[in-house]
Write a protein that binds this DNA or RNA. Structure first.
Lengths: 370, 370
DNA sequence: GTCGAAGGTCGAATCGATTCGATCATCGAC
DNA sequence: GTCGATGATCGAATCGATTCGACCTTCGAC
């Protein structure tokens, strides 16, 4: 065809070879004489042929070279959190090394976006998984697309009933997460060793129904974000029942600030506040400052994640550091393994307590107040 | 075929119709009897057919349903900037409404990533364009992929020589940007009206060779990020020659802080500091606080973008607000138009000066010092 | 009763590549 | 000189859908 953009067939004709030989010249798969290859390449340059059409390759090979990244919220909210970003950066690293692209799929409040149902992808990374039942995961399973669950259910794979259907246990799935539970446990134990006895907690969202305030006790404990539940469980593991828990609609500074005000404005507030993310914790620090409270003299504040928060200076947050980029990298490796048909054993990355300047022993006065 | 995943042909056989009819049942393009459609759909459900394979559709229709978003830096750095995020969010909105996915392509320091050269996409949005010569744009043009330049060259389209080849003027291209130049001009005029005469500038990166410090005067003025150049030009338009300009390697708080220290530690520093982004400006505010300077009494500080920076409280940054999400939305509309073969006229969105608490008239003493 | 139009279905071509098996030529070895 | 092996090239099938034109039926109108 002389019309339209040139195809491999056009190049083959121009070079005086067959289509199969021309294909070999580009892919290098199979024996080909150097002279022939050069001739084909020259003809291609002549025709301004931009290389094999990816659509043709994809249909033939059955691979799209794309991995979907599905976030449990609008991009604006997800990506204001450096946690998602650093993970995504790690993901881009490991996938990029294999020339695999990332298809960005925002998924609001538990619905199944059309892209999940229809877009071409070789695997999907689901970032904030909504507990054992997840319509998105079910939809992917139905399409036979391998799934990597990040910060989702880290337990053993089982047959699950999702709202959109059953996810068979045989469906290729991998799990990547961190040891959140041990993280908050270590954090709280350290605070108890310092002498703290009365704790407040500023929690991450419990589930897709995001709200600010004390959590609804009537909520189904089987659903909701698992990372939140694990971090709370770690606090319980350390033998602490918080005096007050405030749930936030998103891991953002302003929500931490609101929650901080709510907790610290009470009469006789707790001596230590544990926020389940650094962004929330830094909001609590701001609230404390605004209320004229000294940190850590009047109140100890700790976070989770290990972010770099230069604007909190001179304070440095006490936190539990998690390997964010590594988590993304592992998720990428998992996706690559699943695409190749190789099972990928669950990964649980370690976290590490990191002492900052925002925690210290409680004041004696506050202690006698309890 | 009973082997492997079911195809449309399998469904057709099971439903006792031809493949073309089965196709009609799914696509709805063309007349089909309701009874027939139901029979096909029932057969599909029976076989657990997950709908038409996107790879087959894509080859046939020539559309991948994907738009590439190409960022001029690593994701980690790009996405720590809320500016990119909000734009991306707007982009996701307009593209998502057409069921078009976003392929994330990080592109470090001016190289051409393999995905740009080989991934399937119907159009590409290039976010930080490196002046009139851009290898990425050239590569896309060679492949015949329509390009939307955001914050790139806003001038008239011309034939350009890129390092990787020529971009023909006929190549489908759209431009979306903001009126940065007028923005900084208005800002500086306001500051002059307040009485400021001596200015410092904390600039965005000049180009891919990112560094911190006073800009190299030997640098080729024809290359580099155009947004930076336009915002600087706006300052000149207001009749101001800054006493000192500090270039930063990225729009991040910490770089603004370093630059702020550098400027404010000088003997007799300028009375007003203009940062070309809010993130940089907030870093300068932090530096001022650390140096014991009062804002705005001792020094006025202004930014650009109009971000929400809750942790800067009680200060509210004086800034120039740009419609970030709208910019992304327009870029999406532009991509959609170009894919449809419809030309998209250049869009230059207006910006608006916004008075905060970080600017005021200079102190009389400082004025007499000049 | 016949004709035309409209609606529904089907067959076959097509999108642009990859890949397997067959063919053919060349060359070295016996 | 013949045989076998090796390497290069080609033809044709295939991936999974869409879509155009042809065909057939049915129905209404004259």
């Amino acid at each position: 065809m002389s019309t339209g953009r040139p195809t491999l067939a056009d190049v083959a004709v121009a070079a005086g070879v067959s289509v199969s030989t021309a294909s070999l010249a580009f892919s290098g798969a199979g024996p080909i004489a150097a002279a022939t290859r050069d001739r084909v390449l020259a003809a291609a340059a002549d025709l301004a042929y931009p290389g094999p059409n990816p659509l043709g390759q994809q249909l033939r090979t059955g691979r799209s070279g794309i991995v979907g990244a599905i976030f449990g919220d609008r991009l604006r909210r997800s990506f204001r959190d450096p946690v998602s970003i650093q993970m995504l950066d790690g993901l881009a690293q490991s996938l990029g090394a294999h020339d695999i692209g990332i298809l960005l799929i925002p998924s609001e409040a538990g619905d199944v976006p059309p892209l999940v149902a229809h877009a071409a992808m070789d695997a999907a990374v689901v970032v904030l998984c909504n507990g054992p039942d997840d319509a998105v995961v079910a939809a992917l399973a139905r399409r036979g697309i391998p799934v990597v669950l990040v910060e989702g259910d880290l337990g053993a794979p089982t047959e699950r009933d999702g709202p959109a259907g059953r996810v068979p246990a045989s469906h290729p799935t991998a799990r990547v997460g961190i040891d959140d539970r041990r993280g908050t446990e270590a954090l709280v134990r350290t605070l108890r060793a310092l002498g703290h006895e009365r704790f407040g907690v500023v929690a991450l969202p419990f589930g897709h129904d995001r709200r600010l305030g004390e959590p609804d006790p009537a909520r189904d404990p089987r659903s909701g974000y698992l990372a939140t539940r694990r971090r709370l469980a770690g606090i319980a593991d350390a033998g602490v029942v918080p005096e007050i828990v405030i749930e936030t609609p998103a891991s953002l500074v302003e929500h931490g600030r609101s929650a901080g005000h709510e907790i610290l404005s009470r009469p006789d507030p707790p001596t230590a506040i544990i926020a389940l993310s650094d962004l929330l914790a830094s909001g609590v620090v701001l609230a404390a400052r605004e209320l004229g409270l000294r940190v850590p003299e009047d109140v100890s504040i700790a976070g989770f994640d290990g972010l770099d928060l230069p604007w909190l200076a001179p304070d440095v947050l006490t936190t539990v550091r998690q390997p964010l980029a590594e988590k993304g990298r592992q998720a990428g490796e998992a996706a690559i393994a699943l695409i190749a048909g190789v099972p990928f054993p669950p990964v649980i990355l370690p976290v590490q307590y990191e002492q900052g300047t925002t925690t210290a022993a409680p004041r004696a006065a506050s202690h006698s107040n309890g």
